[in-house]
Design a binder for these strands. Sequence first.
DNA 1: CTATTTGTTTATCC
DNA 2: AGGATAAACAAATA
Length: 267
Amino acid sequence: MPELAEVEYFKRVWEPAEGSKVIGASANLDKRIFRDIDNDEFPNCLIGTHFEQSLRSGKQLCFLFSSTHWLGLHMGMTGRLKLSDDRSEDFKYDYLTLFLEGHRRLVFQDPRLFGKVLYHNSRKAPKWWSCLPGELTSDSFTYEQMDAYLSRRPKSVIKSLLLDQGGFPGIGNWMADEILWRSRIAPFVRVGDIGTQKRKELFQKIKEVCFDALAVIADGWKRPPNEWLFNHRWKDKGICPKTNKELVREKIGGRTACWSPTWQTYR
DNA sequence: CTATTTGTTTATCC
DNA sequence: AGGATAAACAAATA
């Protein structure tokens, strides 16, 4: 589930514990989420450090401990972060726990294990953190950049391309459907068939959906308004808020796309 | 029992 | 070489 705004939400779950000292650590290292951990000392190497900074880029999270300990977390499909206290009882799927002074715990849980834990100890930021593409919400993501990216992939199906983290970091399945719905583009359209005017609209809607998602979900995980596609897309016989006609769900590029055929008429 | 899942990586084909 | 596509990953849920 976690896309841009959900990941930002999880970042803010841990953030209030910044400044705390780590006094214990436990990890189920046989779980798949630790497949890229190559440091034999992990997670004990974090004991004694101070939790300093919470960072996010696209769907990637990075937490910095005592200036040199970089902990990367990716939520995969079912990952979530908790800030637990002594009264918390549900430990199922808690595969990484950092015990803090003051009886609090930083917890990463991930039932489906598609998530990933990364760790690096050095003054300099590791490559998995420093080499990520710029944020879609930043001014550095320009129409020209997007246009060039699309032009290199004329044969791609637009829905699939929007899920490409190299070009559109943070976008996931629901955001991609929301963007195409707001742009009135059918999900199976080939990128080369999208003209300049429509590309400009697409660019605006990408920005809009990113900002909307952050405002609603990253900030307290509020329920999105019914004017979005969001609240209708998972329901059987869901109704398009624009046309009051039934939405359609179909597999495109291996993922379920939800769209409104009478509204998304750009083919 | 079968089908499905809001993500990424890898293999394979073009 | 680089892009397009499908399968694999794991486990819960319907």
